[in-house]
């Protein structure tokens, strides 16, 4: 499939716009010198991934991303930034390591290997556009996937207890 064929599909234009916004936001997340801006642009990147999930017919996953990631995780990050008093704005403390080029080289080679191998494996195969409703995914979660679901909820409980135990002040000291 040539690029002109690909771009004439309206969904691919939407995809391209979302992808560009996501990549730009991701670059800001890893490159900005303002910690709060990094956490807030992560919202843009995650909202882009939610939009892609809607395009792929995964509506429940999309709303879970909005609720859990944008609603809870980013707020948790903002609290973490607040508590650790990370330098906000152009502070004298460097946020990045001095040597960036080895990291950029590694990241570029990771991208090269993964993009090359997926292109070699899945060239131009089309995605079927079925929509899975929240109702169906609820049925699946509580029938076929009930054991992994319970295991994951146990992980959440353990993380909750662990977070409280780690973060509270020791009463003896």
């Amino acid at each position: 499939m040539s690029f002109t064929d690909w771009i004439t599909d309206a969904r691919n234009v939407v995809f391209l716009v979302i992808a560009l916004v996501m990549v730009g936001a991701a670059v800001v997340v890893v490159a900005t010198r303002n910690v709060v801006h990094a956490a807030l642009t992560l919202v843009v990147a995650l909202a882009g991934s939610a939009a892609l999930f809607v395009m792929l017919g995964a509506e429940f996953v999309a709303w879970t991303v909005v609720l859990v990631y944008i609603g809870a995780v980013v707020v948790l990050f903002l609290f973490g930034i607040m508590i650790t008093r990370a330098p906000i704005g152009r502070d004298s403390v460097r946020l990045d390591h001095v040597r960036r080029w080895p990291a950029a080289l590694i990241a570029a080679s990771v991208f090269g290997v993964m993009a090359w191998s997926t292109t070699a494996a899945f060239g131009g195969e089309e995605i079927s556009d079925g929509v899975l409703k929240a109702e169906n995914i609820g049925d699946l979660l509580f029938s076929r996937y009930v054991i992994p679901f319970e295991a994951v909820s146990f992980v959440l409980l353990a993380a909750l207890v662990g977070g409280i135990v780690l973060a509270r002040k020791d009463p003896d000291r």
Binding site: V23, V30, L95, A104, G123
Partner: peptide, 26 residues
Amino acid sequence: MIVNQFLVLGALLFSIGVYGVLVRRN
């Protein structure tokens, strides 16, 4: 929509994340 466009976007975001993990100090 072809499957590879999503996979390449995922690879790009993943490698940006790898860069961030390696280069950030905070």
